[in-house]
Simulated scan of single mutants.
Amino acid sequence: MRYEPRERLQTIADVHPDMERRAMTRDERLARWAELLERIPDQRLSTLSETEYQPTWARKTMRNAGSPISVAFEDAVLRAEGLQDDTYGEARRFFELSDWELHQLVCSCHSGATVRAETAARNVRDILEPRPGLFAMLLNALLVVRSS
């Protein structure tokens, strides 16, 4: 593939620079975040301290430089999609996460002061592709046994 200036492309192709592109879906934004984290698997990222104990107003503004949320905010694609900063509240809004889901991703109570980016990516993917919980696995096993 070779580079061609826009002016040249306009003479050989139907170019529409003002054409709007489709916004990313929630799943696409989460998948992009996971991919960014997977690119730096061994990097230690800062967590947020005890998010579940913070009042809502304080939790919204929580941030830590070098956190999994910061990795997302450093990405030009996610910023172009509307990610405005690297705070807990903005990540909750932009990625359409519940407090419980975001707590699982960034809280210090799960991994201490830092988390490996690979672990954070796996946690993001778990939101995208939830694994069945213990109760669901037991129920499934019971139903398999009963149908045999």
Rank of each mutant, 00 (worst) to 15 (best):
Y3L: 12
Y3K: 06
P5D: 12
R6V: 14
R6P: 02
E7S: 15
E7N: 11
E7G: 06
Q10D: 10
A13S: 07
A13Y: 12
V15Q: 01
H16D: 02
D18L: 04
D18K: 02
M19C: 00
E20T: 02
R21V: 03
R22V: 10
M24I: 00
T25S: 15
T25Q: 04
T25V: 05
R26M: 06
R26C: 08
D27G: 11
R29N: 05
R29E: 04
L30H: 12
L30F: 12
R32W: 10
W33S: 03
A34K: 09
A34G: 08
E35C: 00
L36V: 05
L36D: 03
L37K: 08
E38I: 01
R39Y: 00
R39M: 09
I40L: 04
I40W: 01
D42Q: 13
R44Y: 07
S46H: 09
S46D: 02
S49W: 08
S49Q: 06
E50M: 11
E50T: 09
E50N: 11
T51W: 02
T51V: 10
E52F: 10
E52I: 09
E52L: 05
E52A: 12
Q54K: 14
Q54E: 14
P55N: 14
W57A: 15
W57H: 12
R59N: 03
T61V: 13
G66N: 04
S67R: 08
S67C: 09
S70G: 08
S70I: 00
V71E: 00
A72Y: 02
F73G: 01
E74K: 05
E74M: 06
V77K: 05
V77T: 13
L78A: 08
R79P: 04
R79T: 06
A80R: 12
E81Q: 15
E81A: 14
G82N: 06
Q84Y: 02
D85V: 07
D85R: 07
D85N: 15
D85Y: 04
D86W: 06
T87Q: 12
T87R: 14
Y88W: 15
G89A: 10
E90P: 12
E90R: 08
E90F: 04
A91W: 06
R92Y: 01
R92F: 01
R93N: 11
F94E: 03
E96I: 01
E96L: 06
E101K: 06
L102H: 06
H103N: 15
Q104C: 11
Q104M: 12
V106K: 05
C107M: 03
S108Q: 10
S111E: 07
A113M: 07
A113H: 08
T114A: 03
R116Y: 11
A117M: 04
E118T: 05
E118D: 15
E118V: 04
T119W: 04
N123A: 11
N123F: 10
D126H: 12
D126I: 00
D126L: 09
I127L: 15
I127F: 14
E129Q: 15
E129K: 15
R131S: 14
P132G: 09
L134T: 15
F135K: 13
A136R: 13
A136S: 13
L138T: 07
L139T: 11
A141W: 13
L142V: 03
L142D: 11
L143H: 10
L143R: 13
R146H: 09
S147Q: 09
S147L: 10
S148C: 08
S148L: 13
